[in-house]
Design a protein around this nucleic acid. Sequence first.
DNA 1: ATAATTAGTTAGAAAGGCTAATCGTTAGAA
DNA 2: TTCTAACGATTAGCCTTTCTAACTAATTAT
Lengths: 153, 153
Amino acid sequence: MSVPPEEAAKDIFEVVPIIMREIRSVMRSKRPPVLTVPQYRALSFVDRNAGSSLLDVANHLGLTPPSTSKLVDGLIGHGLMTREEQPVDRRRLKLAVTDRGHKDMIAARQGTLAYLTDRLRNMDEGDREVIVRAMKALHLVFTGNPKIGERWG
Amino acid sequence: MSVPPEEAAKDIFEVVPIIMREIRSVMRSKRPPVLTVPQYRALSFVDRNAGSSLLDVANHLGLTPPSTSKLVDGLIGHGLMTREEQPVDRRRLKLAVTDRGHKDMIAARQGTLAYLTDRLRNMDEGDREVIVRAMKALHLVFTGNPKIGERWG
DNA sequence: ATAATTAGTTAGAAAGGCTAATCGTTAGAA
DNA sequence: TTCTAACGATTAGCCTTTCTAACTAATTAT
């Protein structure tokens, strides 16, 4: 039986915001320290791509450069990231994650994954397989990249 | 082959924020009028459940009553919702969506669905079926409700 | 050399979220 | 029945996130 794209879109639009709210809520509930979802995403990205510029991060997060600048300001203020000048092109920043930033990022990830894992533990195993396949397909559609998981190194 | 809950959790945590960012970005890009995701969700809920109280909406959105009060204030200020007193219990509000609120909500929904549909159009049909099944399973896990789609009336 | 482009920041506004305190209404118990 | 407890909603005050517009500094191209 055929599944039109409209139907899949409807279901995604219904369910994704619900899950996202849970994720946000879990990440906010850990304290201290607190990492918001964008903060976590920024740390994670720079951690994987050492020496990223501000625009690299902005593109990855889907934020404007000013918003990203403020976000990075905050992370630096909390000692989770550093901002260096590059001799090659003095306009471009060279961002890097500090040890503490790395630790906080891992902690935030673990906390959230533990929560999600717990939610998924009692479900039908076939459903979990379907979810994994769906996430891979969606990742491809929305990023052009078929591979999930580089993020986790 | 067995899919442990940890793996599904990881994939969800990777992919859901990406999709959510797209949804948010599409909803923000329509103008005028602009509806944010929580605004859309509040309108949609009240539209389906005419006469809802503020707490009903707050529970649905997962927000505190004060936050919801502000959100509703904004919607009323833009002429998208009305707030009435109930004679039965004068503490409880009776919220309702105006014609314009209904129209804006439909427009926001259509715009977002059109975007998502477009993204999903060129994918393998089997993948779409997997996505639909995954969304239903996730909806059940995160809401306790197996049924998606009441939202759309 | 000067103009255009690029990277990033600052300024100012709006939205969205929280907790704590308050007000009016209703329900329950002495 | 009265008085107290609980409930629904708002206000006040705070902080964060995001935007757009305007700016500075550095680099590239004409």
